[in-house]
């Protein structure tokens, strides 16, 4: 278990902000931090990794003290925390090939099967290429493989899939789950994509201005309790077309675009780009394989 009780004053665009965390995170779970930009999500990861020192508080991991400010300030060096960290910019070493990046991370006397890791992350063909020559998705895979090569107990992912397009993102989400199970990790990720959080995480924590505003199983956090209908999907309004007495609205749900008619009065309260929920009790869908 990871017990974090810390306070840290951060500089945010709106002025100084206190990151105030009091959390107990369970072992072998995937935990997601979410919230608007500048709420301290990345700082929370950096504090856990030892790259940023809290002003006060304590961090204990499996009973071992990683940080404490009382009675004397003690901070375990990042080198001794055995944390795998996938940075937002991936932080691949440009002077090394893919394989050398992995070897550098693994060279600590640990018996790591790099061939298996390359296979798991589908990087076998790219082993001798330099990171600069790879696409964004490939670089993300190298960064994750490199983090796993050091056999960490905790894997931290800072917006791991935000820069990638939808199809690659889906595939990599599956890979994150697979590696999490195989390497028996405690994975903590930062994301602002609700779909990703629901798919991946066991526990989600929402931060607002440095404070935890709610936490729980994502399915409970994101289900709209105010809408009574049983069947709900979220989407976005793309366009409106005026038709006699009604308005035809074009919607994007997942990656499907379709049209539906709504009353003029309802349309007046909506704008293009609004996030909406489609709800129905009359749920009789047909199922197609993609």
């Amino acid at each position: 278990m990871i017990a974090i009780q810390i306070k840290k004053t951060l500089d945010s665009p709106a002025g100084p902000m206190v990151l105030d965390l009091d959390l107990e995170l369970k072992k072998n779970q995937i935990i997601a931090f979410y919230g608007a930009s500048g709420t301290g999500k990345t700082s929370a990861l950096r504090i856990l990794a030892g790259l940023l020192q809290p002003d006060k508080g304590s961090i204990q991991v499996e009973g071992q003290v990683w940080f404490q400010s009382n009675p004397k300030v003690f901070s375990l060096r990042p080198q001794e925390r055995n944390i795998g960290f996938v940075f937002q910019d991936y932080a691949l070493f440009p002077n090394m090939t893919v394989l050398e990046n992995l070897e550098f991370a693994a060279s600590q006397g640990k018996n790591v099967n790099l061939d298996h890791l390359l296979e798991l992350t589908e990087l076998g063909d790219l082993a001798h290429k330099k990171p600069k020559t790879l696409s964004g998705g490939q670089q993300q895979r190298v960064a994750r493989a490199r983090a796993l090569a050091q056999r960490p107990k905790i894997l931290l992912l800072d917006e791991p899939l935000s820069a990638l397009d939808e199809s690659i993102r889906r595939k990599l989400q599956f890979c994150v789950l697979e590696a999490h199970k195989e390497y028996q990790l405690t994975t903590i990720l930062v994301s602002h994509n609700k779909e990703e959080i629901i798919k991946l995480s066991d526990w989600a924590i929402q931060l607002k201005e440095g404070k935890v505003v709610q936490q729980g199983a994502p399915i409970n956090l994101f289900s709209s309790k105010k809408i009574p209908e049983k069947f709900k999907v979220s989407g976005e309004i793309l366009d409106f077309t005026q038709k006699d007495n009604v308005v035809e609205v074009q919607l994007l749900v997942q990656d499907h675009v379709f049209k539906m008619e709504i009353e003029q009065k309802k349309a007046d309260s909506l704008r293009v780009g609004d996030q909406i929920v489609l709800a129905s009790n009359d749920f009789r869908p047909k199922l197609y394989k993609k």
Binding site: Q79, A91, F93
Partner: peptide, 21 residues
Amino acid sequence: SPSLKEAAYLMGKSKRETLVK
């Protein structure tokens, strides 16, 4: 990028090894 240095530290590398390699 400071993340290169930080990534190496998290891999258990000393400041000197990070600088040289």
